[in-house]
Amino acid sequence: MVNEKEVVLFQGVDKVYNTGTVALSQLNLSIKEGEFISFLGPSGCGKSTALRMVAGLGEATRGTVEVFGKNPKAVIETSNDVAFVFQDANLLPWRTVLDNVLLPLELRGSDKKSRKETAISVLEKVGLKDHIKSYPRELSGGMRMRVSIARALAAKPKLLLMDEPFAALDEMTRQTLQMDLLNIWEREKMTVLFVTHNVYEAVYLSSRIAVMSARPGRLSNLIDVDLTYPRERTTAKFTEYVDAASQSLEHSMGRKELV
């Protein structure tokens, strides 16, 4: 299902913060349409920084980031093509579930009548149709994350950016949400950029894993995961990929210690 159309391109990207911290160094990566790519790495490896640049929320110090062949800021200003799911659900506590999902449609000024239908249909997709009148505080962490995903899907993005969305959830909830996310990805034919520090999660979800190393953040390895979906977590092949990813992660951390 991966074709050659380029969705995201990092070209020689450096990011140096004002404090002098080098968050990213010489990141080169091309992400094709329909990919599910995970940035896997320890904290401080710049994976979130890279994701924020794609969303137009941060700028590269050197090099270029392109989304659909354009500047990321221009993309978010002119289209609904990019959506972002934050680590905490980041819902507006004074709005009901339905109103939270309606928010992107309101801000984008889409047609008033169709808004509600769209919102209800995405809430149906994430299995929350019965909770549209609830407030975020009345929901569990997993349900809140579902609302957050529904909100991201509401504007029909082509590129979904996810910054450790399941990190704060318990294992059971996380696995269910991973499964649901894959279903959505296959159905909607989106490109997904997924940031995680969990090796199992990366192998279970991704068509490709970008392993990052820390201080300075750099791309240390790219792993193509040639496993058919849905994946079984217990097969030998799965374990092999987990080992490969873990080793490459350890290798990148080891190198950090040598420096």
């Binding site: 978010i76 972002f84 980041n90 309101e106 801000l107 504007a155």
Partner: peptide
């Protein structure tokens, strides 16, 4: 206002006025 929520509004290209009415004033309540 929570930084992530501010980012969310930026991401949807919200105008200054929209951010004020839909985010900053409710958050300040």
């Amino acid at each position: 206002v929570d930084k992530n929520m501010g980012d969310l509004f930026k991401l949807y290209n919200a105008s200054k006025w929209q951010t004020m009415v839909k985010l900053r004033i409710p958050a300040a309540m």
